[in-house]
């Protein structure tokens, strides 16, 4: 066993206050400072599914829980949610989802496009379970409504923090896969609504025309002291400079 990890993740703190949690119905007593993810490991599980970035962004550890004597369902990411006494926990590490296949280049950013690829969007009955189940506090039903009405920008913006964990789809009585609708909306927005950067296209052309070849070849041949000298003399763009700030020496632009 690796010498570092157990102590690194602090799963075995002797002085910790132990509380009961129920993993898939079975009781384990775990330290009350742990996240659901670390508590599961403390209980003795080796995670394979249901664990990814351990930092709340990859969406691998969507989790559903309830408390004893409470009818309400709660949702969270296992790596971000701290355990509480008498939680009844299950992870949803995978939920089947249909994903449309498309060529983003050829599409138009309209309601018709969304409907063509995800016709089930009209089945939405406005129950709002998707929003209630989102561990990222995204207004899922609102972005679905925006996509349906062709407001692609709003659908993209409202869904921007989506980690695609799938809890919304798991709870949807209309069998929608909201997060796949969302990424289609975001890609439509990024490709067809946001204006493209002219300066970027221009720079690509400059590079392809070989504008930087000779000056870069010179740098590649330079020895350490020459490079250090050039490096030290670099003009630094000030922090508070305006976007259109220009350097004094423009010979290498």
């Amino acid at each position: 066993m690796s010498k570092t990890q157990a102590k690194q993740e602090k799963i075995n703190e002797p002085k910790a206050n132990l509380i009961p949690i129920f993993l898939m119905g079975k009781r384990y007593d775990v330290p009350d400072t742990l996240t659901i993810q670390k508590a599961t490991e403390y209980a003795g599980f080796q995670l394979i599914r249901g664990c990814g970035c351990r930092g709340g962004i990859c969406g691998a550890c969507g989790t559903v829980y309830r408390f004893a004597n409470d009818y309400k369902l709660y949702y969270g990411l296992a790596c971000q949610t701290v355990v509480e006494p008498n939680m009844y926990i299950t992870q949803i590490p995978f939920f089947p989802a249909n994903k449309a296949v498309y060529n983003i280049e050829e599409l138009e950013p309209t309601a018709e496009t969304i409907v063509k690829y995800y016709p089930e969007i009209f089945k939405c009955m406005g129950c709002n379970n998707c929003t209630l189940s989102c561990p990222m506090d995204i207004k899922v039903m609102d972005y679905v409504a925006a996509a349906m009405s062709g407001n692609i920008q709003q659908a993209a913006e409202l869904s921007f923090d989506c980690v695609m964990c799938g809890l919304c789809a798991a709870r949807c009585p209309a069998e929608e896969v909201q997060y796949n609708i969302a990424i289609l909306a975001r890609r439509l927005y990024g490709r067809h609504i946001l204006p493209q950067a002219d300066h970027l296209a221009e720079r690509v052309k400059q590079v392809e025309q070989g504008r930087y070849e000779s000056m870069l070849k010179e740098l590649m041949k330079a020895d350490k002291s020459q490079l250090m000298d050039l490096y030290t003399k670099r003009q630094l763009e000030p922090d508070n400079a305006d976007e259109m700030w220009e350097p004094e020496d423009k010979s290498h632009l």
Partner: peptide
């Protein structure tokens, strides 16, 4: 995978 399981278990 790293080993984060409980050594006691």
């Amino acid at each position: 995978l790293p080993d984060y399981s409980n050594p006691e278990v």
